[in-house]
């Protein structure tokens, strides 16, 4: 039962209040894109066994979306940040590096 910090409410939220929206920082492909790029945007997901950046909505709460960095093996959460960010904040990347020396970076 995850307990994740909502950056809008500034408090931890129980999993029952949240809904997960999958991979964060996807770049939407519109009609001008190639079929291949569109497929990648729509279906191909980073599905790492390890650290992922993902979207959550505090659906039974403030209703706001936010992003987290989480480890899919241990469920450790490295921090939450606004869904408007186009990349993870440096502080969160630093936290991840503190725990995972082999972390390659968020886009890899």
């Amino acid at each position: 039962m995850l307990y994740i910090f909502c950056p809008t409410c500034q408090r931890d939220c129980d999993e029952t209040e949240l809904s997960c929206g999958g991979q964060a920082h996807l770049i939407r492909r519109d009609h001008a894109s190639s079929d291949k790029d569109f497929y990648k945007y729509l279906y191909e997901r980073k599905n790492d066994k390890g650290i992922i950046f993902e979207r959550w909505r505090h659906v039974y709460g403030c209703g706001k979306w936010f992003h987290t960095a989480r480890c899919t093996i241990t469920n450790q959460v490295f921090g939450s940040y606004s869904a408007k960010e186009v990349q993870p904040p440096k502080s969160i990347l630093a936290t991840i590096r503190r725990y995972r020396v082999d972390f390659k970076g968020w886009g890899k």
């Binding site: 929206g21 939407r28 979207r55 909505r57 659906v59 209703g63 706001k64 979306w65 869904a83 408007k84």
Partner: peptide, 13 residues
Amino acid sequence: FSWLEEWLQTEWH
């Protein structure tokens, strides 16, 4: 409603 919120907050904010 969730669908609109999602697009508004995460894509066209």
